Simulated assay, not measured.
Amino acid sequence: MMTNESNKVIIVEGLSDKRQIEKIIDDHVIIVCTNGTLGVEKLDELLETYQLDEKDVYILVDEDPSGMKLRKQLARELPHAEHIYVSSEYREVAATPMKVLANVLIGARFTVHPSYLI
């Protein structure tokens, strides 16, 4: 479920990450794709559009060099954000098995569809 009224925002790298999370999550949340690293202008646009300074922000990016670079950049700009990690075994959010990703999201206090917990 997603509404613009949500107080929770998950920032991911790509559309495949977003689609994977949308299948699993059963919570009011906005999922924002960065499409890789962010320039200053794009980051400012995201901050303003989604009011990221006023929301509960979660960063869920790949465990690869580009994901770690993006995580570091977002950590500087959004020090209040909570970081969610996928195992380096899977490296990518989209490549993480649904059950594993569901458990990672539960660990970050999100509600997930029960069918992904079987």
Rank of each mutant, 00 (worst) to 15 (best):
M2L: 11
N4Q: 06
E5M: 08
E5C: 06
S6W: 08
K8G: 13
K8R: 13
K8Y: 05
K8N: 10
V9M: 03
I10H: 00
I11Y: 00
G14D: 01
G14W: 01
L15K: 05
L15S: 04
L15D: 07
S16L: 08
S16Y: 04
S16M: 09
D17M: 01
D17V: 00
D17C: 01
Q20A: 15
Q20H: 15
I21M: 09
E22R: 08
E22N: 10
K23G: 06
I24G: 05
I25G: 05
D26Q: 07
D26C: 06
D27K: 04
D27V: 06
D27P: 02
H28S: 15
V29C: 07
V29S: 02
I30W: 02
V32D: 00
V32Q: 01
V32Y: 01
V32E: 00
C33L: 04
C33F: 03
C33I: 12
C33N: 04
T34Y: 00
N35R: 08
T37V: 12
L38M: 10
G39I: 05
E41M: 11
K42V: 13
L43R: 03
D44N: 15
D44K: 13
D44E: 13
E45R: 13
L46A: 05
L46K: 12
L46C: 09
E48P: 07
E48C: 05
E48S: 10
T49F: 03
K55N: 12
Y58M: 05
L60N: 01
V61K: 00
V61C: 04
V61G: 00
E63M: 13
D64F: 03
D64A: 08
S66L: 09
S66W: 06
S66Q: 12
G67Y: 10
L70R: 00
R71Y: 06
R71L: 08
R71P: 03
K72H: 07
Q73E: 06
L74I: 08
L74N: 09
A75H: 07
R76K: 15
E77G: 11
L78V: 12
L78Q: 03
P79E: 05
P79A: 10
P79R: 08
A81K: 02
E82C: 14
E82S: 15
I84P: 04
Y85F: 14
V86P: 04
S87A: 13
S87K: 06
E89Y: 09
E89F: 12
Y90W: 13
R91V: 10
R91D: 12
V93F: 04
A95L: 13
T96C: 10
P97S: 07
P97N: 02
M98P: 04
K99W: 02
K99P: 02
L101V: 03
G107V: 04
G107C: 03
G107S: 07
A108M: 04
F110N: 03
T111W: 06
T111K: 13
T111S: 12
V112H: 02
S115I: 14
L117W: 02
L117K: 11
L117F: 10
I118F: 14
I118C: 09
